[in-house]
Amino acid sequence: MPTVEQDRDTAAALARRASGRAATILLVEDDQSIAEEVRDDLVSRGYIVEHTADGMAALRIAEARHFDLLILDRMLPGLDGLTVIERMRAQNIRTPVLVLSALSAVDDRVRGLKAGGDDYLSKPFAFLELAARVEALLRRPIEVRETVLHVGPLEMDLIDRTARRLGRELDLLPREFKLLEYLMRRPGQLITRDMLLEDVWHYRFLPQTNLVDVHIGRLRRKLDAPGEAPLIQSVRGAGFIFRVPD
């Protein structure tokens, strides 16, 4: 059962998207220099950023006002990051939370997500990676009520596990199907290699080989027949964007 808060949050998100208003982000990070860089980077990407260094203060601000996203360091003075999330969730504040942490160990990551975080990024990170995660959290993936997903020239039957491009059947392996579904639900969004490894392959280590690129390359060759516009674009040093041709 959706709660009132949840409805309000969803409504706010819809209103924001409709009006094209910039998303508001509360950044909670006690390292001044990292906080400044992150804020400047996010502001340059068009977000409205408010910053605090203290966990207690963060909780008060989040209780008082609505934000579209919280970026939260795990180790904070005042109140630690996981407790901030737990208290917020206990009050039905459903703002998505991106947890930042210098602890990269898998167990810590699991703990962060269990506490109610929506994504977890370990420090140090690339700004592009952070930006991709922020965008992914602000734009929730496309959910469809029907069992068929339509994006641009592509059509995907989620029950039959089949996909077509303009009526042409695509011969996809199960893993390729999962990869394409992930991309189709996030059109126009930067998807990093780490996101694919984590979300599509549930991989917890970074391969030394270009594993992700190879799989994307294969999928690309199956998607694009000669003469057709490429659907998956590479972003140098960052990842991929699934782009629907105009």
Binding site: L173, R175, T209, N210, L211, V214, G217, R218
Partner: peptide, 11 residues
């Protein structure tokens, strides 16, 4: 093997 098949081919 499933995961690395394409990588092998690439190499």
């Amino acid at each position: 093997a499933d995961l690395y098949q394409p990588v092998g081919e690439e190499h």
